[in-house]
């Protein structure tokens, strides 16, 4: 198959994560990975981001596929259920807003900056080496720490499920993927008559 320029975007994942180790303010760039998929799904009504450009999906496909860091086993049934996928999306949102709230508290001066990256919503990793700022408002830095935590957490979760299951298992419950699919469903209508004919759902298992 012909390789396109966008087949090399996986490089952005390691670049992003390492930039954040040098200077946490680079974490702001992560907003691109947040808004581009949303804009594509809202404007074009497709999952073009997942289907083509997503660096993270490509990164997992590369590590788990080419480099063989995956058991290549099926994900458990509950993981691909709507309940879990939507539940995880909501959970992710709540944690995201909590992060925004912390940022707001720092912005308003109610709390002081915490130079730590929260991994898996629990572990506070010390990260002060990546921040030396005095020029910028601590709130700006707080958001960077928070957002970097979100990105790192999702990468780590993705890596774990990559190893345990298929390379791109993360895509099954990825909040961005679920959200863009929901947007597409809302935009394009749920049901579609020209599905594959004569296919019975009985064969599943």
């Amino acid at each position: 198959m012909k390789k396109h320029w966008y087949d090399y975007l996986w490089i952005l994942t390691p670049i992003y994560l390492s930039l954040g180790c040098f200077n946490i303010l680079f974490a702001w760039l992560g907003l691109i990975f947040f808004f581009v998929p949303l804009i594509i799904s809202i404007v074009k009504g497709t999952k073009g981001y997942c289907n083509r450009y997503c660096d993270r999906g490509q990164f997992f496909a590369l590590l788990g596929g080419r480099f063989g860091l995956s058991r290549k086993k099926d994900v458990p049934r509950w993981m691909k259920s709507k309940g879990f996928r939507y539940g995880f999306l909501i959970f992710f949102f709540i944690m995201f807003f909590q992060m925004l709230w912390t940022t707001w508290l720092v912005f308003s001066g109610a709390e002081s900056l915490r130079q730590a990256v929260t991994l898996l919503w629990t572990f506070k990793l010390p990260w002060q080496w990546a921040y030396s700022g005095t020029l910028i408002h601590p709130g700006v830095a707080q958001f960077a720490f928070g957002f970097y935590g979100v990105m790192l957490t999702s990468t780590v979760l993705g890596l774990i499920t990559m190893i345990l299951f298929k390379p791109r298992s993360w895509c099954v419950y990825c909040p961005m993927g679920t959200m863009t699919q929901l947007i597409c469903k809302a935009k394009n209508g749920k049901s579609d008559p020209d599905t594959q004919k004569n296919y019975s759902r009985k064969v599943e298992s």
Binding site: M1, S41, G45, T46, K47, G48, C50, N51, R52, G57, A61, K80, R85, R168, C171, V172, C174, G177, T178, T180, Q181, I183, C184, K185, N188, K190, D192, T195, Q196, R201, E204
Partner: peptide, 27 residues
Amino acid sequence: VMEQDCVACGCCMKVCPLGAIKVHKGI
């Protein structure tokens, strides 16, 4: 494809040598 459970990630279409499988309207 068991379409009800599809997450529309498009991994399938990336590997299909014939371009026979496509994600339809992001769904």
